[in-house]
Design a protein around this nucleic acid. Sequence first.
DNA 1: TTTCAATAATTGGTTAACCAAAGTTAATTA
DNA 2: TAATTAACTTTGGTTAACCAATTATTGAAA
Lengths: 233, 233
Amino acid sequence: MLDIFSEIKVESPVDKIIRQIRTLITTGELKSGDKLPPERKLSEKFGVGRYVVRDAIKKLEFYGIVKTQPQSGTVIEGLGMVALEGLISDVLKIEENDFASLVETRILLEIESAGKAAERRSEEDIVILQNALKAYEDKIIQEGSAVEEDLLFHLKIAEASRNTVLKSLMLIITPDIVKSFTKLKVCNDDSAKEIIDQHQQILDHIIAQNPEGAREAMKNHLKDILEFSKKMK
Amino acid sequence: MLDIFSEIKVESPVDKIIRQIRTLITTGELKSGDKLPPERKLSEKFGVGRYVVRDAIKKLEFYGIVKTQPQSGTVIEGLGMVALEGLISDVLKIEENDFASLVETRILLEIESAGKAAERRSEEDIVILQNALKAYEDKIIQEGSAVEEDLLFHLKIAEASRNTVLKSLMLIITPDIVKSFTKLKVCNDDSAKEIIDQHQQILDHIIAQNPEGAREAMKNHLKDILEFSKKMK
DNA sequence: TTTCAATAATTGGTTAACCAAAGTTAATTA
DNA sequence: TAATTAACTTTGGTTAACCAATTATTGAAA
């Protein structure tokens, strides 16, 4: 009986503002390099408090669409109007990422990280990675599980890859990975010993500066997770 | 003479708050699942306006560290304390990505996108991609250059890959790519015809559902950019 | 006529007060 | 005694007013 009711659309005021600004840009009234009208004018025009406008602008700035300079104004510096059309609407719901995509992408980034780390690692990186691995072992012995330490080891590999963007992207998806893991209990504890071995192998290849070996070891390490994610379907 | 002066660190109040909250978490006073003190108490404790605290919390929410529920409170739901230690400080300066890393990572994502798109594209995707390619050609004929339309074609490929995370990451780095391109004038116009041909080849492989072909075509397409980025050094 | 300085207006940043919803407590009733 | 409800407190959300820095304007002096 309740089926006759459809979910009401509760579009937040902030999203409304973003949508309106997007419209202004797509219609050509605002183009890259232009200064955005002052916040007061916008709030007046939109019939909403200045705070909400500020919020929307902050969100746009977060994604690099606009840049606001204190006591000066807000300028559009992101994509041109064409790309913006479909972009922001997607950016608004960037969080609804499915688990399969997450794992698939993570594997892609991880393998690349391992390969590049093997090519570019410094002596200092080796020490850092060894410490990270040891921290993981200790935590496992103490508490039996160590999701954060596990991820931390992987992040350190990304760091050793000397690719700042790669590392940034890893950082971005890491929270989602942790969330999925703890929610789905992917890591069953009895495989902890095996994971440590795999980590050690990856590290060995990185130390030996063997990119292909590191990539294969990482691929093997993440294979189980990939299998698991496919079964989730 | 001026060298004796070092740049003053103008740490914004927001960053200060984030740093303090991080400290609270790392020292164990706040752990995952805990409710954050109310904004009023925090602002009082930090000796700063509630607005600034709100701002910091919003930023943390963006990165998925905390989750705020209206009229209820803000809870910590992100990573555990260990990973957080080094995370936020890095996340704060996520934008200082160098061009070489950007290109390297872009190529990685693009090749994967092309391959997956060839595997998973629907009939509808084909139409969308053909339209995107045509829009690019038209813009080239009209104005001689079309950075946005170029990127838009690539984004549509990412969309056809049916990997939401992959697409999200592409969206995240796209603004930086555009910025770098327009700043460095990577695309010299005389190669427009060649680019169209390469795009067409990628599309052909996607239509033919030939992943390896698509990957190779994409790799070839981006090779020039990679060369350029290496010369930048 | 041009240049420069002082002042007025405009800008984003910040604060304090107010609002509605959620949670809590206590009193009243079955 | 237990359950329910009503009032009260606390919560984040929003608005309006205020602040300091910047920019535009205007007028005077060279």
